[in-house]
Structures are given as C-alpha cells and as structure tokens.
Amino acid sequence: MKRIIFAFLSVIACALDLFAQEAAPVEVFPTAPYDRYIIFQSLALFWVAIVGLIVIIRMKLKEIERVQKMGIDREEKDIPLLD
C-alpha cells in the first residue's frame, strides 16, 4: 500500500511540472535605476572622451602634414653636427 501511495504521489509531483511557469529570463543588464543611470552617463562620457581624442589626433595629423608639406621634416645631407 505504501508503495502505491508513494508511486501515486510521485506521479502527481511530476505532473505538477506541467503547470510550472517558464523560468524568468536571466537579467543581463543591471536593473536598479541608479545603476542604469550611472551606466548611460558613463557611456555618454566615454563618447565625449572619444570625440575629444579624435579632435586632438586630427589636429596633430594636420600639423604633421603641414610640416611635411614645407619639407622641414627631412634631414639635410652633410648637416654640421654640434658635439
């Protein structure tokens, strides 16, 4: 009898799985509003830094091209060296 009751309860326990809800998807992004705010703020600052660096590199590049155009970057031959 005990075995029959145990088997019956096991079947019910397994059948309950059919009514179980789908497991909630894993949160792959922080959910707290403060964390989200900090992340988006950091992203905006990151882009400001990238734009700033690009502006500096472009200025440097223009200066290099200006110097190359004038030809003063090339070494002269037989230039006297100060010891």
Binding site: I39, F40, L43, F46, W47, I50, L53, I54, I57, R58, K60, L61, I64, E65, Q68
Partner: peptide
C-alpha cells in the same frame, strides 16, 4: 608612420565606441 597610423587610431577609437555602445 605617423600619417596612416594616426588615421588608424581614429578609426580604432570609433570602432571601440561602437563596440562599447552595442555592448551596453
């Protein structure tokens, strides 16, 4: 070096920005 290298750097920065934005 330095002309193309600096242009490469600019593009790498933009790609880094794009990757970080998509990741976020």
């Amino acid at each position: 070096f330095p002309n193309l290298f600096y242009k490469d750097l600019i593009i790498w920065l933009l790609v880094l920005g794009l990757t970080v934005t998509l990741a976020t």
